[in-house]
């Protein structure tokens, strides 16, 4: 992951500061990894690294979608609930298809298809209500967050939805299998990141996102169809949530009202740790990837030691996040005239 290229900013000015801002998250990640090794050598074990990267894949994939939304000046708080809702619908659908198609690949493919469709639709709704309804994204997605959360609770009757055991065995490799020694979720994470990077930094769509996030009015006067682009970012976010859910469901084969709680905050945190600006106008995919890994790594390191009281886990987490972002912003401020 360290060989990731620093993204090229559209404007070539302030080269020195750009470098530090770009590499800041990587340096923080490295420092954290060193801390991990010092605390427990098992941290560097192949199993642990693969566990950790696999775990970070959910938040990571969602956060890549969030990078687009935030870069274009939006915000999506509904992602955690959306993931839970999609997971719930997938499980119900696959369970009901077992009778017709048996516990086979067809059933799983239907589930996956439904997930992608639902994600796109949910994103479309967030986007259209925000842009056409002229309501703040915060309010719209706060609303849909509550809606999806209660829908999944309703679907599960307040309990837990469990996937049919036959389907589970077919679907299991999507989370647990490895290709060329790399767990499938990590591969998905990587592919989504590469596509996201190209989309954000090397296409017109990406440039429009930057422009809209910097100044929506100016973008509009520059003949960018702001509403369409913004809606597309929410749909992209929905698609990412769907992908994350597709790799999440085979892990435990269940969904409940407690699934994906606070994922939205973790995703937003990953995006900001990575150097994307919360108020929009600048986004960084590789930074987001590092941010997501860092968040998981903190939890992992805390689990590998008993030197820190369990009661203080949240404190350690909070301090590391703030320090990571501070270092990055402070060095940037010092170097920029």
């Amino acid at each position: 992951m360290n060989s990731a290229m620093p993204d090229t900013k559209p404007s070539g000015r302030k080269r020195a500061s750009v470098d530090i801002m770009t590499w800041g998250p990587f340096i923080a990640l490295l420092a954290l990894a060193v801390l991990g090794v010092l605390i427990n050598p098992a941290f560097l074990g192949l199993d642990n690294l693969s566990n950790m990267l696999t775990r970070s894949a959910f938040i990571g994939v969602i956060a890549i979608g969030a990078t687009f939304v935030i870069t274009a000046g939006g915000l999506d708080l509904s992602v955690g609930s959306m993931a839970a809702f999609i997971a719930g619908v997938m499980i119900i659908l696959m369970n009901s298809l077992v009778e017709q198609f048996g516990a086979g690949l067809t059933t799983v493919l239907f589930g996956v298809g439904a997930s992608l469709l639902l994600g796109l639709c949910a994103g479309f709704i967030n986007g259209v209500v925000t842009t056409k309804g002229k309501i703040e994204a915060f309010i719209v997605t706060l609303g849909t967050m509550g809606i999806y959360r209660s829908l999944v609770t309703y679907l599960a009757d307040g309990g837990t939805l469990s996937l049919d055991w036959g389907v589970r065995d077919i679907y299991r490799p999507v989370y647990y299998a490895s290709l060329l020694g790399i767990p499938v979720p990590v591969l998905v994470f990587l592919v989504v990141a590469v596509i996201g990077y190209i989309l954000l930094n090397h296409t017109r769509f990406g440039r429009y996102c930057f422009a809209i996030g910097s100044n929506e009015k100016v973008a509009e006067y520059s003949a960018i169809s702001v509403d369409r682009i913004k809606t597309l970012t929410y749909m992209l976010q929905g698609l990412c949530v769907a992908l994350a859910t597709i790799i999440y469901v085979p892990r435990l084969g269940s969904a409940s009202g407690a699934t994906g709680v606070l994922w939205e905050l973790e995703a937003i945190a990953a995006v900001i740790i990575g150097g994307t600006v919360l108020k929009g106008g600048h986004g960084r995919i590789w930074g987001t990837v590092v941010g997501a890994i860092m968040l998981t790594m903190i939890g992992n390191i805390l689990n590998l030691t008993d030197a820190i009281s369990n009661y203080l886990n949240g404190t350690v987490q909070g301090i590391i996040i703030i320090v990571a972002v501070y270092l990055q912003r402070a060095s940037w401020r010092k170097l920029a005239p």
Partner: peptide
Amino acid sequence: AATHGWTGG
């Protein structure tokens, strides 16, 4: 409210 398994029960 039924926010997790036990309260669902």
